[in-house]
Design a protein around this nucleic acid. Structure first.
Length: 592
RNA sequence: CGGGGAGUGGCUCAGCUUGGCUAGAGCGCUGCGUUCGGGACGCAGAGGUCGCAGGUUCAAAUCCUGUCUCCCCGACCA
């Protein structure tokens, strides 16, 4: 490809609405342009990179048992009603009514469609297992699109769905997919970690996320110091508090509960300031309700955060939401901010107390009376720690200083680029994906599903590879492998040498871009750095006069360029191409 | 959805408080010349009716109302 015939609209100024490096650089390098909030055009350069990422995904899926298909983006709402996900996804689905009055949705994902295919076409255990995948646009009406291509309303996803006769078969495919994912991300040159995850709206039993660590990431990754365990914060467990042998003795020494007036002092911070205590000596009482009006009271230490992903299954009352003001007033007998755990077990459907609270000698909490708190509240004495409706459990977020399996927990941020789930029979049962087993008995297919955010691979690669001058691409997903810059395009000898090297590389199957624009060198070098092609051949008058050109890697400093003769330039570049590909994916990563 | 901010040439922004001459700058773009290995310089140009709709006024980019769009913060941090 010749630059003069290509469209690479680079810009010097940083667009006002781009905040993170990958977003800024994708716009500045002319890869993408925004059409509307959360929707982007991939310009020729960006599309080349995206296609390369797609192709790596495709190759590895094909190599690991995937069968590529193309399912409709346009789906009937009716299908979603059958699994109840018309409600679960309601707020995030792009939907519209067609001229016949039917509701349609633009695919946010495709479990329903693929399962209905399996329901129709899979009849026998002999057809199983099977793993169907596609790479295509998905639509989610995000609450808040942001960070460019990282959280957009339309995005490119590789989604795969496997069907099995047995759990063992599912496990096998799940492992195979994890392996394929490792190869994909290795080949794409992104630095990732695999963590335990919550399966969220997908449902199912097991799930792992592939996260690219990056400060702009929206998820928090928790890892043990020895690296043996990692999880999304949503899921990350914490060790139980140390057992204090003196606990009971200390509690006996605590005086009776004492009510103190705290007018309009509702938040933990305010109460601490008012009563001169610390958050760690307080108990936060949160009141939740489900759609049927069942009420759950959760109690965590004042310095801890409740984790709803942990609370929900323990409460066992379905989806929970923080109760509205009226419910809080009714349950606690006080305005918002003054609830306490005392006497709650008798009033609500469930009381869930965090381990850390159960281990407190005593604490301060709301008095269940407006404008009042109580001191000297002793767990077990002043509110129950056991009983029909009471559970003590891990319901809080891990935080700095916590341990798991005795290992200190470390926190970092990450971008979710891949997610694998064991779905079980949630969809197959509802949509009738059944088969006959060896004994002629009808069974429901067991399913797995496996997603990759293809756009996110690009953004993540940039977040992990850029400098003050622009992008530093891994060669596998760079828009071009080699850039030949003709510094003096108006000089026939220079232009001729550059063209010759370009043609040699093309003939050798190298993906090469020739900057044949008649422009000043400085502009060309700046553009070259910006678009980040990994191998650069600089052809200029001062070298050509000596029969030489310069070759350097984008990631190396300017002074590390090497001079080679014009004749050998293409061969040397090919060696470097091979070397750079060889560097990708050499690290083996262990996946369970 | 709640709070905040912003919509002015292709891009980044000034002007608006205290309405008033042909609406400005930088970048980009076109032409000519000088330059020419790290985003050159000079000269000459093209390009906006100030998001949209209404209103106030002799007069509106500027004030008022409505509306649309975009961005930021939050949205189940008590």
């Amino acid at each position: 490809m010749k630059w003069s015939a290509f469209l690479i609209p680079t810009v010097k100024e940083v667009p006002a609405d781009a905040e993170i490096p990958s977003h800024q650089l994708m716009i500045r390098s002319g890869m993408i342009r925004k059409l509307a909030s959360g929707t982007y055009t991939y310009m020729p350069l960006g599309w080349r990179s995206l296609r390369k990422a797609m192709e790596i995904v495709r190759q590895e899926m094909d190599a690991h048992g995937g069968l590529e298909v193309s399912m409709p983006i346009l789906q009937p709402m009716e299908l979603w009603s059958q699994t109840g996900r018309d409600v679960a996804f309601e707020e995030i689905m792009c939907s519209f009514k067609d001229r016949h009055g039917r509701m349609n949705v633009l695919a946010p994902t495709a479990e329903e469609v693929v399962t209905s295919i399996a329901a129709g076409e899979v009849n026998s255990y002999k057809q199983l297992p099977i793993n169907l995948y596609q790479i295509g646009s998905k639509f989610r009406d995000e609450f808040r699109p942001r960070f460019g291509v990282l959280r957009s309303r339309e995005f490119l996803m590789k989604d795969a769905y496997s069907f099995h006769a047995t759990l063992e078969s599912l496990d096998e495919t799940y492992r195979l997919m994890s392996k394929a994912y490792c190869r994909i991300f290795d080949r794409c040159g992104v630095d990732y970690v695999v963590v335990e995850a919550d399966s969220g709206a997908m449902g199912g039993s097991g799930s792992q996320e592939f996260m690219v660590t990056c400060s702009a990431g929206e998820d928090v990754i928790v890892r043990t110091a020895d690296g043996s365990y990692g999880a999304n914060l949503e899921k990350a467990p914490v060790d139980l508090p140390d057992v204090d042998k003196e606990l009971e003795t200390k509690r006996i020494g605590v005086g009776a509960m004492e009510e103190v007036s705290t007018p309009n002092v509702g938040t933990i911070e305010d109460v601490c300031a008012f009563l001169k205590t610390k958050p760690a000596e307080m108990m936060k009482t949160l009141i939740y309700a489900n759609a049927d009006g069942a009420v759950v009271v959760a109690v965590v230490r004042g310095d801890h955060e409740l984790n709803e992903f942990k609370l929900t299954p323990i409460a066992g009352l379905g989806e929970l939401e923080l109760a509205d003001e009226a419910t809080i007033v009714k349950v606690s007998g006080a305005k918002v901010g003054f609830a306490g755990p005392m006497g709650m077990a008798e009033k609500v459907n469930k009381v869930v107390i965090d381990h850390a609270v159960a281990a407190m000698v005593s604490g301060v909490t709301g008095a269940n009376k407006s404008d009042a708190h109580v001191k000297n509240v002793v767990p077990g004495r002043d509110f129950a720690l056991s009983g029909d409706k009471v559970v003590v459990a891990d319901i809080r977020n891990a935080m700095e200083g916590d341990t798991y399996k005795g290992q200190a927990l470390q926190f970092s941020r990450g971008i979710e680029v891949g997610h694998v789930f064991k779905l079980g029979t949630k969809y197959s049962a509802k949509l009738g994906a059944k088969f006959l087993d060896e004994n002629g008995a009808e069974q429901v297919c067991i399913m797995g599903c496996y997603g990759i955010g293809v756009n996110r691979i690009l953004a993540a690669a940039i977040e992990g590879g850029y400098d003050e001058n622009g992008i530093v691409w891994p060669i596998s997903i760079a828009p071009f492998e080699v850039l030949v810059t003709s510094v003096n395009q108006d000089d026939d000898a220079v232009a001729g040498a550059a063209e010759k090297i370009y043609e040699q590389l093309r003939a050798a199957g190298v993906d090469v871009l020739l900057d044949d624009r008649v422009m000043r060198g400085g502009v060309k070098f700046k553009d070259a750095d910006l678009i980040g092609v990994p191998i650069r051949i600089t052809v200029g008058k001062r070298g050509v006069d000596n029969g030489e050109v310069e070759i350097k890697l984008r990631r190396d400093d300017r002074d590390k360029s090497e001079n080679v003769t014009i004749d050998k330039a293409a061969d040397r570049a090919r060696e470097l191409v091979t070397m750079l590909y060889g560097e990708l994916g050499r690290e083996s990563r262990r996946i369970d």
